[in-house]
């Protein structure tokens, strides 16, 4: 288990990460979401001790620096192009292997895992973004770490690569490890993450399971449509249900279709539509971070 405790990072007057605490459970994939500039990368760097800041991060109760071989505890991919362009892919990994006291034989294993064995002797300066990501993933896997910390690992990967990465991450976590992964691909995240940590403007917005986040969204609930909406609204209010107007109907949250159906029958309102709605992760995410987007595109008015 990784425990991030009161992480804070300030750049002069700007607070990039503001008292963020969360837990990453072993055996699970934890997604890390937030708008651009929310502080995701800075949080990861704080967790690894790369940036100076306040707060603590422990890996199974101990600081990363207290382990004899930190590479066996956490493997990182924070930037796809983090390699010297004239050092061959294999040499790059051999340097990292030496630094982490990892045998050189592991280099060929990880190159094979990420599908780069054929280009191991090539200089990665001209690698595509997808190949660079694979090399970064290989670097993260070198020490067979218990924890993987991946920042936008799917960037630049082709569809086959994304599918491979998704399955790989899930399998890695299932093997008793933990993966902490940030991504802007919410559909991917919804398919692979068990838990989510959401931050916005440096602050923790949510640390929960994907299911809880989606169910708690205003877009989840029961959609009900009737010609006698005012009467139904009154009945819902009296029953203490929460609802919002949605098109020609109402979206009632925190209830099941049965509850709304029974209530409508009780107040004598005929229904035209009664549907269970489940929000997408994207809807839930946008709803959560609506107030914390630092960089927003302006509307397309002409």
């Amino acid at each position: 288990m990784i425990t991030a405790d009161h992480l804070t990072k300030k750049y002069r007057k700007k607070v990039a990460v503001d008292d963020v605490s969360f837990v990453i459970e072993t055996g699970k994939v934890t997604g890390f979401l937030g708008p651009n500039g929310a502080g995701k990368s800075t949080t990861m760097r704080l967790m690894l001790g790369l940036d100076a800041g306040q707060g603590n991060t422990t890996y199974d109760g101990k600081k990363l620096s207290s382990y004899a071989k930190p590479s066996e505890i956490v493997g990182i991919l924070l930037e796809a192009k983090a390699f010297h362009p004239t050092r061959t892919a294999r040499s790059h990994l051999k340097v990292l292997a030496a630094a982490g006291s990892i045998p050189d034989s592991r280099v060929d294993e990880v190159l094979d895992i990420v599908g780069l064995k054929e280009v191991g002797k090539k200089r990665p300066g001209k690698f595509s973004l997808g190949m660079s990501q694979r090399l970064g993933i290989a670097a993260a896997l070198l020490g067979k770490p218990k924890y993987l910390m991946l920042d936008e690992p799917a960037n630049g990967l082709d569809p086959e690569g994304i599918a491979w990465l998704r399955q790989f991450i899930k399998d890695y976590a299932d093997a008793g490890n933990a993966v902490f992964v940030s991504s802007h691909l919410l559909s991917e995240m919804s398919q692979m993450a068990d838990n989510l940590v959401v931050i916005g403007q440096g602050k923790l917005i949510a640390s929960t399971t994907v299911d809880a986040l989606v169910k708690g969204s205003g877009h989840s609930g029961v959609f009900v449509r009737t010609l006698r909406r005012t009467e139904l609204e009154l009945g819902l209010k009296n029953a203490g249900y929460k609802f919002v107007k949605q098109g020609q109907g109402l979206n009632v949250t925190g209830v099941k279709t049965d509850d709304v159906g029974k209530l409508a029958f009780k107040v004598g309102v005929p229904l035209l539509e009664l549907t269970q709605q489940t929000a997408s992760l994207e809807q839930a995410f946008l709803e959560l971070t609506a107030d914390s987007e630092e960089y927003k595109a302006q509307g397309g008015e002409k």
Binding site: R45, P70, S71, I76, A99
Partner: peptide, 11 residues
């Protein structure tokens, strides 16, 4: 080339 992050997290 930002390899310093690997160097520092390996040690």
């Amino acid at each position: 080339y930002n390899t310093i992050m690997y160097t520092l997290t390996s040690s």
